[in-house]
């Protein structure tokens, strides 16, 4: 029912369902809105949590350009972006 409401009223799902909005500019900048903070930050990967999973950025020279409660901006050479919803992780 909850997931049907945005379709019925033609509303943005990311707002109503608290889903992340990920914007990638080329391979060197990405912004994640509706995030739940940094889960893991390693030399070649950066994992950012969201309400129902996590998004993993892989690459080199990854830097968190800025972080606020609304948005995390990642910079560096982004080679892969992996979405890991919680269900998948549980399997």
């Amino acid at each position: 029912m909850r997931e049907a409401i945005p379709d019925i009223f033609d509303l943005p799902k990311d707002v109503l369902l608290d889903l992340p909005r990920i914007t990638i500019v080329g391979g060197h900048r990405a912004a994640v809105e509706n995030h739940r903070g940094i889960v893991r930050y390693q030399q070649h990967s950066l994992t950012i949590g969201y309400s129902s999973g996590r998004v993993i950025f892989e690459g080199d020279d990854l830097t968190v350009h800025s972080i606020s409660s609304e948005e995390v901006v990642v910079e560096g050479r982004i080679e892969a972006v992996v979405l890991q919803p919680d269900e998948v992780q549980d399997e």
């Binding site: 930050y41 830097t63 968190v64 800025s66 972080i67 606020s68 409660s69």
Partner: peptide, 12 residues
């Protein structure tokens, strides 16, 4: 971040 303390240019 949740307490409203901004951080920038975070590196490992």
């Amino acid at each position: 971040v949740t307490r409203g303390i901004p951080l920038w240019d975070l590196t490992r």
